[in-house]
Design a binder for these strands. Structure first.
Length: 921
RNA sequence: GCUCUGGUGGUGGAAUAGGUAGACACGCGGGACUUAAAAUCCCGUGGACAGAAAUGUCCGUACGGGUUCGAUUCCCGUCCGGAGCACCA
């Protein structure tokens, strides 16, 4: 009987679906394990072989955990709101919901063929009103909350209102946009609008005017992580800076906790590092410099991490957008300053990037006084100081900061070195080391001592205080697009009002065109009757990350109409034990999700403070492109080995008509009309193509489709091969050429059960050799799965099966555990063989075989090794080793042991005929 | 510029904690079975040198040093690739 994968795979996929084999239910008698994939955005192109890599890995782990007795939750869904469907809608007029639906169907079909053990009864889609109801709900909660810095928690905004009513801002320590100070009387005297504006300064979801990344081609605002090098990640359009009123999430309030709680997560160091970098904690001090514009005196606050360098301040710099600019511009400099500001404003993000290190600036005409030295220094304005960080103003110490140095050189400002022996004639001395000089009471201290000493001084004299700043900015939360969650907010006399939560979801209305309106409003401006009680509803929609921030919680209880997740489901499933996905979400989704979870945690809706306990980033599968070489101005192609003899152009050729780098010439002629009469210069009768590793994409003709692999080799082969390709976390090129090896392996497994005449498994007792092979495999596979080293696990299978095949093992007591071991990797064939062995239930309910170590013990004799006349340790050598060889080994060990000290010897490695190696503690 | 990664045969990659480098697989070469092909199976396959052969010797994990009885693995420096951040004071 032949291994008929097509029939087997179709049959078991149908069986699992029909019997709901992977349906997860709360079961307090068993430990839970939650395995999650980053859900896909269903694009029109469908899946290529790179996409399922992570899904296969998580599926293997899920199936393994089930065998180990865990109640596994392994769901899947779709991140279905997003720009591509909407762009497509603008071009074709087709409703994004229709394209999305179609793409999802295609994705599902492709996923189903690979044999994943998802509980599809829990499928979610972010564009489903029953789902986005809870996205809107969470938004309302954030709108109705502020962040208390004392308790480090989100609290209902009503508590803040109450505090304002009784004692104003006194005693309030809340995360906010700008520091405010008013009394209870002042608060109570405020108008509705004024109160609303004040509260906006504190709400966790708030409206604010900020400089945003504006993409004119997409007609929308983008978040920082949606912009790469001045271009939009989706579409690659240029992005510029623009001031706009937007909804924002006060993610920055959580910066400290987001940073600290990284410690307890089982994530890779590099990923944690990226997040740390993005959060960007820096410890320093805020200091007040008195600044004078004519007779007017102002307190100008700056932030620095190098308080020790205050004696070297020779000028101050303000960000162009800083509020101090207006106050500190002297009349005689007004014109120059305005000209500079206009120039800075006009620049796009792209231009600023292109001009990195080009030093620009203008003198404000005012001066500030150094609070420690009393020195009078000029106040400048320059782009290199960012308004959004710190206080938007700095003290410049050109001797010890390279940016200040460049500025000082450009505008000829003085440079005062503060560290003994440093040379600042060519460049600044930025390192935090050396002995201080020219610094009054700090002289003689090391920099490390001077920093805290300077801050202490500043605090004692009321000049400033310690301060921690974060780079993490609040997330801009509105998009001027159609295909996203509507905001459940309407405006009454310009004051935003929250919608009644009981009326959620607020459904996305139908519109007839998806472009922005003629007046520049978002597409929802076209919606008729987009009002609540006659008041206009917010016209922008939420960004992509809104729907993906809490989706893992919804999977726990996907059909609950009364809560995002019930307490019971939340307390059982808690959080994701294993999360697998790409590293591209390191500073986007993975920050927002953690923030969102912490917010819900503060309000008591979830019981875990972190959403993803362990996280693995699968590497990208790259394409392996093939090239042909056309001789210039001809239609003649030359084989790669001979191409240097001609002048050629390199042309991508479809990898699907190339096998082992040999071109299928007939297929090539049919591939494109222009090649129909192509001529070839061959080597050894073949046309050999060149190759290169690139991103897998249609334009490179290197896309390999998983359906095609399933058709010719089967899903089990695809799964095994994707794992065999290399370490999960590493990027590697796909090359279909090697797939025969794993296919051969599966056929060999099959032949251990079936020969030409039928089933050949016997109940005979297994030999020690067979058991040894089996148990070596059990130990290895278990260890490898736990370590996510799936490629070596597959190799171990091949070795074991080769051994057993050679031993002609057809014994049930060996083959049964073998099939169970194999089932996470190649579930279809395993299920088939499991049933052939006489089991009625799915192999999903089998138990992971128990590892017995004693089978691995070799046949050995024990010898004593001695030196200095005493037996120091014993060593086991193969019993059949000749006496002379044993003597040689023992002598050699005695030699080595003299060097090492016998007590340090842990293990002795003996190789027949070779020198002994000694493992030392 | 800063942070993180990685560099091993023709190819993808192995090598628990510093101990036989190149497992496993692809490809390639040779052979068996077959009328033939497919399938299957067996043998060889890092390099150089010596030998008729079994085999032996030397060199080899980007490069240069170091620690160690012993380094692909640890440390320092250099070169090259990949990723992230990028005027964050």
């Amino acid at each position: 009987m032949e291994y008929n994968f097509k029939e087997i795979e179709a049959r078991w996929q149908a069986y699992w679906a029909k019997n709901q084999t992977f349906k997860a239910e709360i079961d307090s008698s068993r430990p839970k394990y939650y395995v999650l994939d980053m859900f896909p955005y269903p694009s029109g192109a469908g899946l290529h072989v790179g996409h399922p890599l992570g899904y296969i890995a998580s599926d293997i782990f899920s199936r393994y955990k089930r065998l180990c007795g865990f109640n596994v939750l392994h769901p899947m869904g779709y991140d279905a709101f997003g720009l591509p469907a909407e762009q497509y809608a603008i071009q074709t007029g087709q409703h994004p919901a229709v394209t999305t639906e179609k793409n999802i169907a295609r994705y599902r079909e492709q996923l189903d063929r690979i044999g994943f053990s998802y509980d599809w009864s829990r499928e979610i889609r972010t564009c489903d009103p029953e789902y986005y109801k809870w996205t809107q709900w969470a938004f309302l909660k954030m709108f109705g909350s502020y962040y208390c810095n004392d308790s480090r928690k989100a609290r209902p905004i009503e508590e803040l209102v109450q505090a304002f009513e009784t004692s104003g801002t006194a005693g309030v320590n809340a995360a906010c946009g700008e520091e405010m100070s008013f009394t209870a009387a002042q608060w109570n005297a405020m108008s509705e609008k004024e109160k609303s504006d004040v509260l906006m300064n504190y709400r966790i979801a708030y409206q604010g005017e900020t400089s945003v990344n504006w993409c004119p081609q997409l007609g929308t605002v983008l978040a920082n992580d949606e912009v790469k090098e001045g271009y939009s990640v989706r579409g690659g359009f240029p992005v510029e800076q623009k001031k706009m009123t937007q909804w924002l999430l006060r993610v920055s309030a959580y910066a400290g906790r987001l940073l600290e709680d990284l410690e307890e997560l089982d994530w890779t160091d590099s990923l944690k590092d990226m997040q740390r970098n993005w959060i960007g904690r820096s410890q320093g001090a805020e200091m007040v410099f008195k600044a004078y514009n004519g007779d007017q005196e102002y307190d100008m606050v700056i932030f620095t991490t190098r308080a020790d360098t205050v004696f070297g301040v020779t000028f101050m710099v303000l960000a162009p957008e800083s509020e101090w600019v207006e106050k500190l511009t002297a009349p005689e400099q007004k014109e120059a300053v305005e000209e500079y500001l206009a120039m800075a404003r006009k620049k796009t993000e792209r231009e600023r990037l292109a001009e990195t290190r080009k030093v620009t600036g203008v003198f404000s005409g005012s001066y500030a006084v150094n609070p420690l030295t009393g020195a009078k220094v000029p106040v400048w304005i320059s782009e290199y100081v960012l308004a959004g960080y710190g206080t938007g103003a700095i003290m410049a110490v050109p001797a010890h900061d390279s940016r200040d140095y460049a500025f000082a050189k450009r505008f000829d400002l003085p440079i005062i070195p503060l560290i003994e022996g440093c040379d600042v004639s060519e460049s600044s001395f930025d390192a935090k080391e050396g002995i201080m000089c020219n610094s009054g009471f700090l002289d003689g201290m090391t920099v490390k001592e001077a920093i805290p000493a300077a801050i202490d001084y500043v605090e004692q004299h009321g000049i400033g205080h310690r301060k921690i700043n974060y780079r993490l900015r609040d997330a801009i939360f509105s998009r001027q697009r159609y295909w996203g969650e509507p905001f459940p907010v309407y405006y009454k006399d310009g004051i935003p009002q929250q919608m009644d939560p009981d009326c959620l979801p607020l459904r996305l209305p139908e519109i007839d065109e998806y472009k922005p309106t003629e007046t520049g409003e978002p597409p929802l401006g076209r919606a008729k009757g987009w009002t609540i009680d006659g008041y206009p509803i917010e016209k922008s929609t939420m960004p992509g990350f809104a729907g993906s921030s809490a989706y893992y919680l919804r999977y726990m209880d996907p059909h609950n109409g009364n809560a995002l997740v019930s307490r019971e489901a939340d307390e059982y499933w808690r959080n994701v034990d294993l999360y697998i996905g790409g590293t591209e979400h390191a500073t986007g989704h993975l920050i927002y999700s953690r923030f969102w979870n912490k917010f819900l945690y503060d309000l008591g809706y979830v019981c875990e403070k972190e959403p993803f306990r362990k996280l693995i980033n699968q590497g990208m599968i790259q394409g392996r492109s093939n090239f042909v070489y056309r001789i210039i101005n001809t239609n003649t192609f030359v084989s790669v080995g001979l191409k240097d003899q001609y002048e050629t152009t390199e042309i991508h050729v479809d990898v699907n008509i190339v096998s082992n780098d040999r071109l299928d010439i007939e297929a090539f002629r049919k591939w494109m009309p222009e090649f129909a009469d192509a001529e070839f210069i061959l080597e050894n009768g073949e046309y050999v193509c060149g190759y290169g590793v690139e991103k897998m994409s249609k334009s490179m003709f290197n896309v390999v489709n998983p359906d095609m692999i399933c058709d010719t080799y089967g899903a089990d082969t695809l799964r095994l091969y994707e794992m065999f390709l290399g370490p999960l976390e590493q990027s590697k090129p796909w090359d279909t050429k090697g797939i025969d090896g794993v296919n051969r392996f599966l056929r060999r497994v099959w032949r251990m059960f079936y020969d030409r005449d039928g089933f050949i498994v016997t109940d005979a007792e297994a030999s020690p050799e067979e058991l040894k092979s089996l148990h070596k495999l059990i130990g290895k596979v278990q260890a490898d799965i736990e370590a996510f080293s799936f490629n070596t696990a597959v190799s171990a299978f091949m070795i074991a099966v080769n051994e057993l095949y050679e031993l002609k093992c057809t014994k049930r007591s060996v083959l049964e555990p073998l099939v169970v071991l194999l089932s996470p990797f190649a579930p279809h064939i395993a299920e088939e063989l499991w049933h052939a062995l006489g089991h009625d239930e799915s192999i999903t309910y089998a138990s992971f075989p128990e590892y017995v170590e004693s089978y691995t013990v070799e046949n050995t004799c024990t010898y004593a090794v001695s030196f200095n006349g005493k037996t120091r340790f014993t060593v086991e050598l193969p019993a059949d080793m000749p006496r002379e060889e044993v003597d040689a080994h023992v002598r050699s060990m005695e030699q080595t042991a003299k060097y090492v000290g016998a007590g340090n010897i842990v293990k002795v490695i003996v190789v027949p005929g070779k020198i002994v190696n000694i493992v030392v503690k």
